[in-house]
């Protein structure tokens, strides 16, 4: 058996009759940071939801730590999720709780640890993201970057084996962007985690991930290490990495010919 923590084979998913994923093969080795990239609407967030068990695949297998996520009942799924951390796009912090209580939430829900020990653990987790001094603040007092870091501290609260990041760089200033990128890499290495980052931020991701999957129209279009991706001659990857306006992904939404739409054909 390989050292893969996440293994996906021939995964299909559809919302009703609309296919989203059309046979995805993907794996993430233990200790790796894997990026899943693609343009908006390509199915990467759906893949994120499938890995976390929020939705079930229509076909194919998806295993996390050897468990087939699609076969798990609610209890089994909750058992698995206790060993997973999730960082949502905008943090999804509980707005009626302080920073401290947000990080302590899972410890209080899932363990019988005494409050004194929870305090120490929370401060350690917050220290890892550089926000130990902010433990008394309410979430409304945090900047976007700080909220993302608190959410990261909350995600590692119970020392998970896997962390899923949904667009962790969205809407951040350049400093916060670098901080979050470094934190993902550092926490993965020091805590021995596996990280899967769903993102379309190419430049920041290629700096710190081990492996990249490019998804387009529900299929893996390209994959490789950051160096391989940068050197790729595939038109889609080239367009994406260099942020080109037109290419395989068209600038214009499909439409009738321009002159016909402007009724210039009779002129």
């Amino acid at each position: 058996m390989s050292g893969n923590l996440v293994e996906i084979q021939g995964l299909h998913f559809a919302y009703g009759k609309r296919p989203i994923l059309k046979g995805i093969d993907l794996s993430a080795r233990k200790g790796q940071v894997v990026a899943i990239m693609g343009n908006s609407g390509c199915g990467k967030t759906t893949l994120f939801r499938l890995i976390s068990g929020a939705v079930k695949a229509t076909q194919g297998t998806l295993k996390v730590d050897g468990l087939n996520v699609g076969d798990l009942d609610q209890d089994g799924l909750y058992q698995l999720r206790r060993r997973m951390g999730v960082l949502f796009q905008f943090g999804a912090l509980f707005t009626d709780m302080s920073v401290f209580d947000n990080v302590a939430f899972q410890m209080r829900e899932h363990t019988d640890l005494p409050e004194a020990m929870i305090r120490d653990l929370v401060l350690m987790k917050l220290n890892a993201v550089g926000l130990r001094g902010a433990h008394d603040l309410m979430t409304s007092e945090l900047s976007g970057g700080m909220a993302r870091r608190v959410a990261l501290a909350r995600a590692i609260a119970l020392d998970p084996m896997l962390i899923l990041y949904d667009e962790p760089f969205a809407g951040l200033d350049p400093i916060s962007l670098g901080v979050i990128g470094n934190l993902i890499r550092r926490l993965t290495d020091t805590l021995g985690l596996t990280s899967i980052v769903v993102t379309h931020d190419v430049q920041e991701s290629l700096k710190m991930v081990d492996y990249v999957y490019f998804i387009s129209e529900g299929m893996v279009e390209a994959q490789g290490t950051p160096a391989e991706i940068k050197a790729s001659g595939l038109p889609f990857v080239h367009q994406f990495v260099h942020g080109e306006e037109d290419g395989p992904v068209l600038f214009h939404y499909p439409a009738d010919p321009y002159p016909a739409d402007l009724r210039l054909s009779h002129a």
């Binding site: 976390s52 909750y78 999720r81 997973m84 949502f88 796009q89 905008f90 999804a92 509980f94 829900e109």
Partner: peptide
């Protein structure tokens, strides 16, 4: 409704905490 819109309910489910109970 706002907890749902800001993904707090989803976050709770991802943390293996049942939002109906909590």
């Amino acid at each position: 409704g706002l907890m749902k819109a800001t993904e707090q309910i989803a976050a709770m489910e991802m943390m293996a905490v049942d939002p109906i109970a909590r």
